[in-house]
Amino acid sequence: MVAKRIIPCLDIKNGETVKGVNFVNIQSVGDPVELGAFYAEQGADELVFLDITATHEGRKTFVELVERIARHINIPFTVGGGISEISDAEKLLNAGADKVSINSSAVRNPQLIDDLARNFGSQFVVVAIDARMNDENLWQVTVNGGRIPTEKELFSWAKEAENRGAGEILFTSMNHDGTKNGFANRELARMSDELSIPIIASGGAGNMDHFVDVFTEGKADAGLAASIFHYKEVAIPELKNYLKQQNINVR
């Protein structure tokens, strides 16, 4: 059986790790390569590095950082942030990234998913979706870090992304993100049933039981979290032991 994956997510600004609580009030938590190597050593199954820098200079710094990560870390990693055309993704691939994650740019230009999949293979393309349940109980896809609602509905957009060639979906529930009350398990399970590609759950991890829930009720293939790992509220070796005790297949 393929193991359920635990994925720490590192937000990067100007080459340094940050974590936004509800995407505001950013605090620095260290050097990305050092932190990434530490997590790999601790048993993380993959890493995600999201560039939240907006400037051109910052982007260049990020590509250099990706190469440093690839040199030092011996597990797979995904990079995201600011990828709006093939050439952006190609730079990251050439720097040594295993996968890219696209979010707002895919919503604005869905053809980007097809183009990336055709050029580099589906395994290279993670479509990240930030969605929030609106007042009419509909899951609405948002862009720009959850700030801007769009016309798209979560489940149909996820299916479209799969059909266009996405290799994985990274779903962040904006209702759960930063709450530490658990993942959006009902929605994750539905997505897992409707799609045939792996689903990475994000948003809401607060304790070890939340990971048990997301892999059982939520049927997720991977669980992603940031602050609970960065602030050492949950240590990955303990988490993996706990999951094993609960008969969840982890490495």
Partner: peptide, 15 residues
């Protein structure tokens, strides 16, 4: 066949 076993395609991850 994968779906029957609640498995995804691609096979992605540690095995």
């Amino acid at each position: 066949k994968a779906k029957e076993q609640s498995l995804k395609v691609p096979h992605m991850g540690w095995n």
